[in-house]
Amino acid sequence: MRLTGLLLGAAAVVALAGCSSGADTRAVPATATGSLERLAAEVKCKPNMQTDADEIRQALCKNGDGRFILATFATDRGQREWINDAKDYGGHYLVGRKWVAVGDDGVVSALRGTLGGEVENGVDHHAHAHSG
C-alpha cells in the first residue's frame, strides 16, 4: 500500500492547524462506526475526498471546530500501519474502529465529544530537538 502521499496530506493538515492546547471536558460517547460519509455527517462536515481506494478512503474536512483529515480503512491492520507511519509527522489522532481523524488538539477534542474514540499523539519534534 502506498501511503507516502497520504501521510504528506496528514502532515499538511497538522501544519495548517498549528499548535493549541485546548482541553475539552465533555463526556465521551460510545465510539462511532460507519462509512466516511456517515462519520463526516456526524461531525457536520462535507468531506473533500482525497483518496477513494479499496484499502483507504481519506477526505479533508472542515467544520465549526476547524480543519481535519478523516480516513476510513478496510482493515484494522491497514489502519494501524497508517497511524504508526503518520505519527512521525506529529499531530493528534482520534482513533475509532477502522477510522481516524487527524487535526490539532482542540479539533480532536471536539470531534471526540461527538465520535468517541481514543486520542493518540504523534511525535513532538520540538521535544526531541538536539542541543549542540
Rank of each mutant, 00 (worst) to 15 (best):
T51Y: 14
T51L: 11
D52C: 09
D52K: 14
D52I: 12
D52S: 11
A53R: 15
A53Q: 14
A53S: 15
D54T: 08
D54W: 07
D54V: 05
E55F: 13
E55I: 02
E55D: 15
E55K: 09
I56E: 01
R57F: 01
R57G: 01
R57M: 08
R57D: 04
R57T: 06
Q58G: 06
Q58L: 13
Q58K: 06
Q58F: 05
Q58W: 01
A59K: 00
A59E: 03
A59M: 02
A59N: 04
A59H: 03
L60S: 07
L60E: 03
L60T: 06
C61Y: 01
C61E: 00
C61S: 02
K62N: 12
K62D: 01
K62V: 07
K62W: 08
N63D: 14
N63F: 13
G64Y: 05
G64D: 15
G64W: 07
D65G: 08
D65N: 11
G66S: 11
G66Q: 10
G66M: 10
G66C: 11
R67Y: 12
R67H: 03
R67P: 07
R67G: 01
R67K: 14
F68T: 00
F68D: 07
F68G: 02
F68L: 11
I69E: 05
L70V: 00
L70Q: 05
L70P: 08
L70Y: 03
L70T: 04
A71R: 03
A71I: 05
A71L: 00
A71E: 08
A71F: 02
A71G: 07
T72E: 10
T72C: 10
T72W: 06
T72L: 09
T72D: 11
F73D: 10
F73L: 12
F73C: 07
F73V: 05
A74M: 14
A74R: 15
A74P: 09
T75E: 08
T75R: 09
T75D: 10
T75C: 03
T75F: 03
D76P: 03
D76N: 10
D76K: 08
D76A: 13
D76Q: 06
D76C: 03
R77G: 13
R77H: 14
R77D: 15
R77S: 15
G78E: 07
G78M: 04
G78V: 00
G78D: 12
G78S: 10
Q79T: 08
Q79N: 14
Q79F: 06
R80V: 11
R80D: 13
R80F: 06
R80A: 15
R80C: 05
R80E: 14
E81H: 08
E81V: 11
E81P: 02
W82S: 15
W82P: 09
W82K: 08
N84R: 11
N84F: 01
N84K: 06
D85N: 13
D85M: 15
D85E: 14
D85P: 06
A86K: 08
K87A: 05
D88Y: 03
D88G: 00
D88K: 01
Y89N: 04
Y89V: 03
G90P: 09
G90E: 03
G91F: 04
G91P: 07
G91C: 08
G91I: 03
G91Y: 02
H92W: 13
H92M: 11
H92V: 00
H92S: 13
